[in-house]
Design a protein around this nucleic acid. Structure first.
Lengths: 155, 155
DNA sequence: TCAAATTAGTAACATACATTACTAATAGTC
DNA sequence: GACTATTAGTAATGTATGTTACTAATTTGA
């Protein structure tokens, strides 16, 4: 602890802990979601589920659009899309208007899974937020959004 | 959107979004932290930094202890520790009292880095939390901790 | 119209994690 | 003291992500 000597350290420690806490929560919730998917015999992951949910809202996006939509890089998304194509959850069709683009569509197999995935998502959120009032949930959303904007600013 | 028809969907959507938001924040903050480490020429990652910070508090933990401490599995921790040993940030010494255990110690090289890492951690937290009052930060911590406990309960 | 700049996607490589299955060492019990 | 159960660590394999560098296709603009 030799590098902790200033008076404001207690607050700083709390703030750093808060950041790790967010990390941990992500890990825990992702693991739990994946565990439940496996329990139900579904052979896809939380990230793949998220992609299916997005496609349900807007089918036939290009990979780049989808990546921006999800706030991630297009290269890693491409790999996930590869796997989902192999397992028959999505298919890629060339964009007739732009030979560079490949549009991503969910398959019938994916649509079949969707209600269950949706249910799992809702249940997980409910478990995580159990005991928090509506007001607190709203504050939480606002504060996290605030943090996200803080991080995205001047980058 | 055909699977979204109930009256409570707006709330549920918000709650699901909240969960993804936590995911995204983790990704964004981790990337930003790693980017800054690289900018400063440090050849370690955010996770490795966290481990060094833990060891600064309590040096010479076994891998299993450290894993529990960080809330992660011992197998993946072992891999990270391997890398950190290769790059000279930690060293493993056998526990004289228990031949199965290998105690993890930070090296002089790591101790040299520590102040800078600590500074980066504080700066990142400050940027993320900028504009949030002390009260809001406390609420945020409480609410996130509440969620974590909700997720860890009955597992 | 043709060369240059931009854009979409992929490949290669790296990190952080998980799970399962294994080995080696210790501890506990009869 | 020997047999069994537990514990520490590792190995193998898989997923989600990042960065950098590349190719192919399109758009732009002189």
């Amino acid at each position: 602890m030799q590098h902790h000597q200033l008076g404001m350290d207690i607050e700083q420690d709390g703030e750093q802990e808060l950041c790790w806490l967010i990390n941990d929560l992500t890990r825990i919730m992702t693991n739990e979601f994946n565990r439940r998917l496996r329990l139900q015999g579904f052979e896809l992951s939380r990230s793949q589920s998220r992609i299916l949910i997005r496609l349900a809202r807007q089918d036939g996006q290009s990979q780049t659009e989808l990546a921006e939509n999800l706030g991630m890089e297009k290269a890693p998304l491409g790999i996930i899309i590869d796997k989902m194509e192999s397992s028959g959850l999505i298919e890629r069709r060339p964009d007739p208007k732009d030979g560079r683009r490949r549009l991503v569509y969910s398959t019938a197999k994916a649509l079949e899974l969707l209600p269950d995935i949706d249910k799992l998502t809702v249940e997980l959120a409910q478990q995580a937020l159990e005991g928090l009032s509506k007001v607190r949930r709203m504050q939480l959303s606002q504060n996290l959004n605030h943090m996200k904007l803080n991080m995205l600013r001047d980058r």
